[in-house]
Design a protein around this nucleic acid. Structure first.
Lengths: 136, 136
DNA sequence: CTTTCTGCAAACTCTTTGCACTCGT
DNA sequence: ACGAGTGCAAAGAGTTTGCAGAAAG
């Protein structure tokens, strides 16, 4: 059960690592296909899962429920624009908050945490674009 | 296009309001059926959407991507047990963090935010149950 | 050569929708 | 009686998986 290093896995990782926009599997497929046109969606999903097991990518889900992939592996937060769907990485806002501390005092283990902010990004706010409630 | 008040909507809301465990649509269906056995899943989804539009329930998604429904409508945070899947409401940890302030200074609108903590709940920690990485 | 990985397509899960019928108003 | 709501089943989106052939070690 040893893992092999294939061009598909490498390219998939390169694409995610080069993307700052938290692409979905479908978007990753498109970008991988620019370099390897015959890659299939199933392979992309399998390889993303492999990369996740290895801790090289992270799966993020926002209000709409579809999986977004991020090569920024450390704990951090996100801003999601409800108008255009853009996602921005943010620094982890603060150290473990009072909630985590309170839970740990009661025997809970808090392994990680993440905050998502939802609103309208600067560009959309300028153009006056309104949030259509759909966020992937 | 006026809204009618039906027993299905009322019962669906009652079920969500009486549930502290953030049930999925399927779980809500089961509970509604205890009172109205012929209700269908499609109706539950339609009514949950209606309640969401009315601001009476809120959709929450965790790492696994499936929709959970919550009648606690105010802004608040969640703890998710990675072992048993239990979800606990937490108080909103803090006022708008520095991230929100910084974004707003740049012309962003931050409409709401939510934090999710992931770990092991007290009960699972006691029994020594390990996280299986699956969280609905 | 052996075993994992890939491409393809079919299967699966969760959610939405079309249609004929029901029930509030 | 009119029209929004319901039950059912079929269709959609996103994701997973079985299998035969391709390729890494």
């Amino acid at each position: 059960m040893k893992q092999r290093s294939t061009r598909q896995v490498a390219t998939t990782y390169d694409v995610v690592a080069a993307s700052a926009d938290h692409p979905t599997a479908e978007q990753i497929l498109e970008r991988v296909r620019q370099k390897m046109p015959r890659v299939s969606l199933g392979t992309v999903y399998r390889n993303l899962e492999k990369l996740r097991e290895q801790g090289r990518v992270v799966v993020v889900r926002f209000a709409g429920g579809v999986a977004h992939y991020d090569a920024m592996v450390g704990e951090h937060d996100h801003f999601v624009c409800e108008s255009c769907g853009a996602v921005r990485d943010l620094e982890p806002a603060r150290a473990r908050g009072s909630n985590a501390t309170a839970l740990e005092r009661r025997g809970y283990v808090v392994r990680w945490q993440t905050t998502s902010l939802y609103g309208t990004c600067g560009e959309c706010a300028e153009v006056g674009r309104q949030p259509p409630v759909i966020v992937n």
